[in-house]
Simulated assay, not measured.
Amino acid sequence: MRKLLDAIYTISGLVSAMLIAAICLLVTTQVVLNLVTKTGLLSVNLTIPSYADFAGYMLAASTFLALAYTLVRGGHIRVTMVLNIVPTGLRLVGEVVSLLIGTVVSGVATYYMYRLTLESYEFGDMSSGIVAIPLFVPQSTVLAGLLILTIALIDLTVQTIRTGGSVVPQMNSE
């Protein structure tokens, strides 16, 4: 099970990175097309239809898909000043309570994103750009990211309770 969860977190992070690279490629291509149009080399306007919509959907997907990967690698900002001065027993309680609160918040967000995605699917909601996209498609990627984050938070909570201490690596401040 450990290998499966770690693989899910890693794949989620890789997909996120690929989406960021795709955004860069898309925007760069549009900038080049704008330059070609402005220089007058061609007598037609060159544009990628709905490129801003596509970039926005990819940004939302990459953001949410990166959350779990970043969490389990210790990349999220953590306030540890308080935990460093409290006794070990209270430190464990503080970490578990924090992880449980995060799990509940993430779980509620996952539930409501599921409901929104299902509603968009059932009603056939489409984007309003030049290229109409079924809204449930980009919403599904956000839902997947939230679901993976919720699983990661549950996983970290269980690991923290089992080991009796923090299992999230600390990022180096150097």
Rank of each mutant, 00 (worst) to 15 (best):
R2H: 15
K3C: 07
L5M: 15
D6I: 10
I11M: 04
S12C: 04
S12A: 08
S12G: 15
G13N: 02
L14D: 03
V15E: 04
A17S: 09
A17Q: 10
M18Q: 09
M18K: 07
L19Y: 11
I20P: 06
A21S: 12
A21M: 15
A21K: 06
A22S: 14
A22K: 04
I23E: 06
I23T: 02
L25W: 08
L25D: 09
V27S: 05
T28H: 08
T28K: 00
T28S: 14
T28L: 15
T29A: 15
Q30V: 08
Q30H: 05
V31P: 07
V32G: 03
V32K: 03
V32F: 09
L33E: 12
L33D: 10
L33I: 06
L35M: 13
L35I: 15
V36W: 10
V36R: 07
T39H: 10
G40P: 03
L42H: 07
L42F: 14
S43G: 13
L46N: 11
L46D: 08
I48A: 07
S50Q: 02
S50E: 01
Y51N: 06
Y51T: 08
A52Q: 14
D53G: 00
D53S: 00
F54Q: 00
G56N: 03
Y57A: 06
Y57V: 05
M58E: 00
L59R: 08
A60F: 12
A61Q: 03
A61T: 00
A61R: 02
S62L: 03
S62T: 14
L65E: 02
A66V: 00
A66N: 14
L67T: 01
L67W: 05
L67R: 07
Y69E: 07
Y69C: 01
Y69K: 08
T70E: 08
T70K: 07
V72P: 09
R73W: 03
R73V: 00
I77H: 07
T80P: 06
N84W: 01
V86A: 08
G89V: 07
G89D: 09
G89R: 13
L90M: 14
L90I: 11
R91N: 14
R91A: 13
R91L: 10
L92M: 11
L92N: 13
L92V: 13
G94L: 15
G94M: 15
E95Q: 13
E95R: 02
V96G: 01
S98V: 07
S98T: 15
L99M: 05
L100A: 11
I101N: 00
G102R: 00
G102L: 01
T103Y: 02
T103C: 04
T103V: 02
T103N: 03
V104R: 04
V105S: 00
V105T: 01
S106P: 01
G107Y: 06
V108R: 06
V108K: 10
A109Q: 04
T110F: 11
T110L: 01
Y111I: 01
Y112G: 00
M113H: 05
M113Y: 03
T117W: 09
L118T: 12
L118V: 11
S120L: 09
F123L: 14
F123E: 12
